[in-house]
């Protein structure tokens, strides 16, 4: 008798599991024209970013946050989410590297997310009161919009494994450097910054730190940091630090600047200073075809 009850219960549980599986019918997000069409979708974003805040603008969204950007792609491929939020360059890069992916062409404050320029722009983070800020602003402002988009395009190609021979933004290394500019970034957010092992691509910079031999950083942020350092007459050192460790690193003085695709949001402005924006893009949603 007891065995029979156990068996029935087990069967019931198995059945209820099947029912759960059936309920999770995939929402087709590919036809969405605006974020209103994503109503009720399962969307994910990286925690601690502006993306995670913007995600809540989707009506009735089943939101989910993950600490690392690369894991969002894993979740999408595993089918646990319908899509995830990324910046347009990242989306283009992801879709170039993986044919099964596509993204919704959303435009900020129109069909896409409501965001201020500060939210979707990225800027160099400096310790509050750093005197280099004005100098860096002048250097950044000299880079034309065309150069910026051309450089980003090249970084997207490079990150997707395509060949790029010369970069849109170049500068001479100073003959007599006046010091070192220590820059922190994740080195895990292509095409803004990523890590390369063994064979550096064009323009890549070696990552500093113990145990980081034969590891290189490249990406849009790296090129901007290199340009700024050269123009300041300083040598560039790049440190790979977790997203949540970036502001402590800057605050404590372990690094001089954050160049990590970081948006100068109001909350962060309270802790650190930001320069002018050096790139801005639309927030989009990546989905599986």
């Amino acid at each position: 008798m007891r065995r029979l009850i156990a068996l029935t219960l087990a069967l019931l549980m198995a059945l209820s599991l099947c029912a759960c599986g059936g309920e999770a019918a995939k929402l087709d997000v590919s036809t969405a024209k605006s974020i209103a069409d994503l109503k009720g979708a399962k969307i994910a974003a990286q925690s601690g970013t502006f993306h995670a805040d913007a995600m809540l603008q989707i009506p009735e969204v089943q939101s989910q946050t993950l600490p690392e950007f690369a894991d969002l792609l894993t979740a999408l491929k595993a089918g646990t989410i319908d899509g995830y939020i990324a910046e347009e360059p990242t989306a283009i890069e992801a879709c170039l590297s993986d044919e099964s992916l596509a993204y919704l062409h959303l435009v900020n404050n129109d069909t896409g997310f409501t965001a201020t320029d500060a939210d979707v722009g990225i800027a160099v983070g400096l310790k509050t009161g750093n005197e280099l800020r004005d100098q860096i602003n002048t250097i950044l402002d000299e880079i034309s919009t065309e150069t910026r988009s051309e450089l980003m395009n090249q970084m997207v190609q490079l990150s997707a494994g395509k060949e790029v021979t010369s970069l849109a933004l170049t500068s001479e290394a100073p003959a007599n450097p006046t010091g070192t500019l220590k820059v922190a970034m994740e080195c895990a957010y292509a095409p803004f910054n990523w890590t390369e092992m063994d064979t550096p691509s064009v323009g890549a910079v070696a990552i500093s730190g113990e145990g980081k031999e034969n590891m290189y950083a490249n990406g849009y942020d790296v090129q901007i940091a290199q340009y700024v350092a050269n123009k300041l007459g300083m040598t560039l050192e790049i440190y790979a630090i977790e997203w949540d460790g970036l502001i402590p690193a800057l605050d404590s003085g372990a690094v001089d600047a954050i160049v990590a695709g970081m948006s100068p949001t109001a909350e962060r402005e309270e802790q650190i200073d930001f320069t002018n924006v050096y790139y801005s893009s639309n927030l989009v949603v990546i989905y599986k075809k």
Partner: peptide, 21 residues
């Protein structure tokens, strides 16, 4: 979390490069 290059750290880097979690 502090960037020590032990085994798990390299797993993260390889994952991001290969997209094969």
């Amino acid at each position: 979390v502090i960037g020590v290059t032990e085994l798990y750290y390299f797993a993260g880097i390889i994952k991001r490069e290969s997209f094969q979690t």
